[in-house]
Design a protein around this nucleic acid. Structure first.
Length: 283
DNA sequence: AGGCGATCCTGAGGGC
DNA sequence: TGCCCTCAGGATCGCC
């Protein structure tokens, strides 16, 4: 469920971990973790000296001052929560808490990082080398927050798939999900069924600008919370207030007052305004 | 190549 | 109140 802005807000809320040391790890659900060895699967990132938490698209990575990398994907319902540990007693396991790390921070306090994911569409993957991690990351296209118009145009020129489908393909563009895809297409006045390779450079430029602006503003609002999303401090965001089309099928368009259309496209609910987004005429 | 369906799961919300 | 059905912010795989 979290898309790029939500994942970035989680990343920022984990900043106190940078420079910290992983003192212990407890895995409650081993099938939530993949790793190159059974030992690492049982104790992912044990003993790591944390260099930083980084992000590409919707994927986070815990990077140690050593060869290991932990890829963290939140799927639809994943959360990463950090909170201080007062005293020696560890808090009780939360429902669907699959892994917890005890971290001694650079500031000298002790915190708990917990991975919680009810639906388990997310996952945790340990890589034993920077090279293996980088190879995995090559699946992903450019980060949507900084995508260049010319780059996006080149990637869309090679496919006839509907633009809505292409935007959701993380190999084309990393970070856009169902909410921001619909919002960006509305903002740039592009019909979701438009074949990607039929978008001219000015249209792709409007789209790229809309994607960057919407994601940036959503981050500033702390992300979009429809139901589950919370950052690492368990705080919801407020970007849902700015949504113009997502979840509004059948309701009036904010721009022209016409009725917003909705249909399934690529197995995802897609909402658009057939008056404002006319780049393809329905047959 | 790409469209489609199934799959992995749990929980919230609506209708009756 | 309770039960059943539908839907959900994601990603992958196999089949045609």
């Amino acid at each position: 469920m979290p898309e790029l802005p939500e994942v970035e807000c989680v990343r920022r809320s984990l900043s106190m971990l940078e420079g910290g040391l992983v003192e212990s790890v407890a895995v409650a659900r081993r099938d939530f973790v993949s790793a190159p060895s059974e030992r690492e699967r049982r104790h992912p990132m044990a003993g790591a000296s944390i260099e930083r938490i980084d992000r590409l698209g919707k994927e986070l990575a815990l990077v140690e001052k050593g060869p290991r990398r932990l890829r963290m994907r939140l799927g639809m319902t994943g959360r990463l929560l950090v909170h201080p540990v007062a005293g020696r007693r560890a808090p009780a396991r939360m429902p669907h808490e699959h892994v917890r790390w005890r971290v001694r921070t650079a500031a000298g306090s002790t915190v708990l990082l917990r991975s919680i994911d009810p639906r388990r569409f997310g996952d945790l993957v340990v890589f034993d080398s920077a090279e293996a991690f980088e190879a995995d990351r090559r699946r992903l296209g450019p980060d949507a927050l900084a995508v260049r118009s010319a780059d996006l145009h080149r990637r869309l020129a090679g496919t006839r798939r509907a633009i809505k489908i292409a935007l959701l393909d993380q190999g084309v563009l990393a970070g856009v999900g169902n909410i921001y895809a619909d919002e960006a297409l509305f903002a740039s006045r592009i019909h979701p069924r438009t074949p990607s390779n039929r978008l001219d450079p000015p249209s792709v430029d409007r789209l790229a600008r809309a994607v960057r602006r919407l994601l940036r503003r959503a981050i500033e609002s702390g992300g979009t919370t429809i139901r589950d999303y919370r950052n690492g401090r368990d705080e919801p965001g407020t970007a849902q207030r700015h949504l113009l089309v997502y979840g509004r099928g059948g309701h009036p368009c904010r721009r022209c007052q016409g009725v917003l259309q909705h249909a399934f496209l690529g197995q995802r609910t897609t909402v658009w305004c057939s008056n404002c987004q006319q780049s393809v005429h329905m047959t």
